[in-house]
Amino acid sequence: MLKQHLLAQRLPIALFHCFARQLGAAAARAQTRDAALDPQFLGQKASQVLTELSGSVGGVDSRSFEGMPRDQLALITYAEHGEFTVEERVSAWQETARQEQLWRQSAATRALDEYSSTGKMTGFCGEALAHFKSLPVIEQAQYPTGYADDLLGKIDLDSSDAPVIYAQAASPMEIVRGLLPEAAFVRVSKSDESTTDARGRQIMLDRLYGGREPPFMDGAEGIR
Rank of each mutant, 00 (worst) to 15 (best):
G55R: 01
E213H: 09
L37S: 10
A170F: 14
G211P: 05
T118D: 08
D197G: 13
P144N: 02
E193G: 02
F16Q: 07
L151E: 04
S62Y: 03
R21A: 15
S159K: 06
V57M: 03
Y115H: 07
T122Q: 06
R201H: 10
S116Q: 10
Y147Q: 04
D158E: 15
E88Q: 12
T32I: 12
S134I: 05
F41P: 01
I223T: 10
A184Y: 00
Y143C: 08
Q105V: 12
H17W: 07
D197M: 14
R207M: 15
V86S: 09
P136C: 04
A79M: 07
W103H: 13
L7M: 15
D156I: 08
R21C: 14
R98C: 07
C18F: 12
T118G: 04
A97P: 04
I13E: 15
A107D: 04
S106E: 03
P69S: 00
Q105G: 12
D192K: 09
E88Y: 01
Q40P: 14
L129N: 00
Q140A: 02
H81V: 08
A25H: 04
Q22A: 10
L6S: 01
R104D: 08
Q40H: 15
M121C: 04
E193V: 07
V86Y: 04
K154N: 07
M121I: 03
F124Y: 13
Q105R: 13
Q44S: 13
L7Q: 13
R70N: 11
E221V: 15
D34N: 12
A162R: 11
